[in-house]
Design a protein around this nucleic acid. Structure first.
Lengths: 111, 111
DNA sequence: GATTTACTTAGCCATATGGCTAATAATCTT
DNA sequence: AAGATTATTAGCCATATGGCTAAGTAAATC
């Protein structure tokens, strides 16, 4: 179970690429459609798609002269899981600290 | 409500920095302690801390000649929320597709 | 079959990133 | 006060990143 968190996070560390992901949550689209809203030359935009694809966040197939792109869910879930776990650990520590604080408070109160 | 997702995600797009975050979920630590497990010169490591701090993921204060570092939760939650929402949208679409599929299936069955 | 459409490839450029060493500063410790 | 610790700053270097133009390929369309 290699973790591709490097690729996942760096792929999402760009507004153009996050916009593409957002767009793709509403359904697959052709490269030119994805490109349209972005004020950027097509080759530049293709690099972004390339990065998303090599991070495993999207996939694409060529249909005639058009390349259709769709989102891939699993990697998003993996990144989300990492964040969730870190937060859980952090909150767990807070809970223990808070329990400790209560314990100390109780000791102070009861002697 | 500016979103610092760029900074957040690119800060997490590095194993050294993710390791620091993981370590900090167990509690605050001095710079030299955080540095110890990493086979890297201290100035290089400091750049990583700097990036985490400017992304808002950690904070630090100097106590004597030691700098104590602790994690900051809110930004992690923000990044996690973004991922969660994208996944929710994506899954929502799948649900609608699946509902449509059922509808069509029903039509086929019932004429 | 010529033209348009939709990418694709090649290559250039500026800046950012992630590493290093060496020198400096500030604070303990002896 | 001297020395050891713990950063910090300055500056160098190689590679990665994100943008561009120009030229090429492959599939529709006229």
């Amino acid at each position: 179970m290699a973790n591709n968190l490097d690729g996942f996070f760096s792929a999402l560390a760009d507004p153009t690429r996050r916009a593409v992901i957002s767009r793709l949550t509403t359904g697959p689209a052709a490269v030119s459609d994805l490109h349209a809203p972005h004020d950027m030359a097509l080759p530049s935009f293709l690099k972004h798609l390339g990065k998303l694809e090599s991070a495993g966040l999207i996939r694409s197939e060529k249909v005639g002269r058009v390349r259709m792109v769709h989102i891939e869910a699993a990697p998003m879930a993996e990144a989300e899981a990492w964040l969730k776990q870190q937060r859980r650990l952090w909150e767990g520590r807070l809970d223990r600290l808070s329990a400790l604080a209560e314990h100390i408070e109780k000791e102070d109160r009861d002697g």
